[in-house]
Computed example of a mutant assay.
Amino acid sequence: MLPDPNLQGLVGGLLIGLSCATYLLITGRIAGISGMVATLMTEKRPSPGNTFLLGLVSGPVLWRLIWGVWPPMTIHASFLTVAVSGLLVGFGTRLGNGCTSGHGVMGMARFSARSLIAVACFLATGMLTATLSHLLTGSTRP
């Protein structure tokens, strides 16, 4: 039997906070995923970020091993939509000098002014996009 979804969110949030704080304490670096991926692509030597990324990728596999099913997830979009969205997110992380994990989790916890502004922009853009999508398509899906 799968755990209560509310409990899943609580435990997931606690694990994210613990892993980010541990990464900062051990390496002195921010646990920003876009920066870790950029480092993985450009540097030829192993880094602590590689281990962190391996943990992110192995999470669903561990879920499968523990619960016997893949984590619940539904995608209501075509492959092309997902691919274009991924490219736009990648462009946005470069433009914003970081991603939601770096700014939203680590930057906000450190009261970084740049991260506060970035997260406000992320949220405003997300709300505007969701509202326009709803108005243009009439969709009631989240």
Rank of each mutant, 00 (worst) to 15 (best):
L2Q: 09
L2E: 07
D4Y: 07
N6R: 15
L10M: 09
L10W: 12
L14D: 00
L15F: 13
G17F: 14
S19E: 01
C20D: 01
A21N: 06
L24C: 09
R29H: 12
R29M: 10
I30V: 11
I33N: 15
I33S: 11
G35A: 01
M36R: 04
M41E: 02
E43H: 09
E43G: 06
R45M: 05
P46S: 01
S47F: 06
P48M: 04
G49D: 05
T51P: 07
F52Y: 12
L53E: 06
V57K: 06
V57F: 08
L62S: 02
W63N: 04
L65V: 11
L65K: 07
W67V: 09
G68K: 07
M73V: 14
H76S: 13
F79H: 06
T81V: 03
V84I: 15
G86H: 11
G86P: 09
L87M: 08
G90H: 00
G90T: 06
R94Q: 13
N97R: 15
G102I: 03
H103F: 01
G104P: 01
V105H: 13
A109H: 10
A113H: 14
S115E: 07
L116G: 13
I117F: 10
A118V: 15
V119H: 04
C121N: 09
L123W: 13
L123P: 06
M127Y: 12
M127K: 08
A130T: 12
A130W: 12
T131H: 10
L132E: 02
S133V: 14
T137Y: 00
